[in-house]
């Protein structure tokens, strides 16, 4: 064992150089339990304080959320109904502007074709002429046929 190790050993064997204040260990337990109780109470009151502070803000946020939700619902329903109406009028326009003239043109173009003559019955022709042609046109057609 060299000289420095002897010093280290001597320092260890000299015993405890630190001291604690008189009565420190006797009173430690009571101080500790007092601190535990003190720390437990503010924790509870802190959470209560936090709730008290946050409550009005949360209520305001909830009110905004409800108003926004209701407004959005009304707008959504209104928009859906308007779109439904537009679709219906759209179909009517197509029927009036496109289907009917095309049907008439097709009818006149296919007038001379023998294949389609057999497919159209007499009632359909009468009904079509009555709805699409004026009284003058009908008189003229009638005069030409005899």
């Amino acid at each position: 064992m060299n000289e420095q190790q002897d010093i280290l050993e001597r320092a260890r064997q000299a015993g405890q150089p630190f001291k604690a204040p008189e009565g420190y260990f006797e009173s430690f337990e009571d101080r500790l339990m007092a601190r535990i109780s003190a720390e437990a109470q503010p924790a509870a009151s802190t959470s209560r304080r936090l709730w008290t502070v946050l409550k009005p803000a949360l209520a305001l946020a909830a009110t905004f959320a409800i108003i926004f939700g209701m407004g959005y619902g009304v707008l959504f329903l209104t928009h859906t109904l308007d779109r439904g109406k537009a679709d219906v009028s759209g179909y009517a326009t197509v029927e009036e502007e496109l289907i009917r003239p095309v049907s008439i043109i097709n009818y006149y173009q296919s007038e001379g074709e023998s294949e389609e003559e057999g497919d159209i019955d007499e009632d359909s022709i009468v009904s079509f002429l009555a709805s699409e042609l004026s009284y003058g046109d009908l008189t003229e057609i009638y005069a030409q046929s005899f």
């Binding site: 010093i7 280290l8 001597r10 320092a11 000299a14 150089p17 630190f18 001291k19 604690a20």
Partner: peptide, 13 residues
Amino acid sequence: AWFDGDQVQAALH
């Protein structure tokens, strides 16, 4: 006040 070690103990710590 709460340390009563000698010079060697002080040097050690």
